[in-house]
C-alpha cells in the first residue's frame, strides 16, 4: 500500500459561503484583518530596504484599516438610534424615580406647612384676644 504523498507546497484555499453573511460576522472579519495587518507592521517595516517598499507596506495595511473603519461607521448608523432610545428611556426612569422621592418630601412639607400656618394663625389670634 502506497503512503499518501505529502504536499508541502502552499495551497489555494477558498472560503465557502452559504450566501448569508451577517453584518456582525463581516465586521468581525474586517477587524481581524486590520488587526493582523497592523500587527505585521513592525516586522514588515523593519525588513523594508527602500522607501517605496515601506510605502507599499503602509498602503496595504491602510487599505485593510480603511475597509474596517468605513464598515464600522456604516454599521454604527444602524445601531446608534437604539442607544439613543435606551438612553432616553433611562433618563425618563431617573426623572420618574426622582419625582417619587419628591412626592415623599411633599407629604412632609405639606404637614410642616400646615403647622406653620397654624402657628401664624395663633399669632394672629393673639391680636384679637
Amino acid at each position: 500500500m502506497t503512503s499518501k504523498k505529502q504536499i508541502n507546497e502552499p495551497t489555494i484555499q477558498s472560503i465557502v459561503m452559504d450566501g448569508h453573511l451577517e453584518a456582525a460576522e463581516a465586521l468581525g472579519a474586517l477587524s481581524a484583518a486590520s488587526v493582523a495587518a497592523t500587527a505585521a507592521l513592525p516586522v514588515a517595516l523593519s525588513k523594508c530596504e527602500t522607501e517605496s517598499q515601506m510605502e507599499k507596506v503602509i498602503a496595504d495595511r491602510d487599505r485593510c484599516m480603511l475597509a474596517y473603519i468605513n464598515s464600522q461607521k456604516k454599521t454604527l448608523q444602524q445601531t446608534g438610534p437604539l442607544f439613543e432610545r435606551t438612553a432616553k428611556e433611562l433618563e425618563i426612569a431617573a426623572a420618574e424615580i426622582k419625582q417619587k422621592t419628591q412626592n415623599l418630601h411633599n407629604a412632609v412639607d405639606a404637614v410642616n406647612l400646615m403647622a406653620d400656618i397654624t402657628r401664624l394663625a395663633c399669632s394672629l389670634a393673639l391680636a384679637f384676644c
Binding site: 456582525a24 465586521l27 468581525g28 477587524s31 488587526v35 464600522q72 454599521t75 444602524q78 445601531t79 437604539l82
Partner: peptide
C-alpha cells in the same frame, strides 16, 4: 453587531 462594534 453591537458587541463587534464595541470590541473591535
Amino acid at each position: 453587531l453591537v458587541q463587534k462594534q464595541m470590541t473591535t
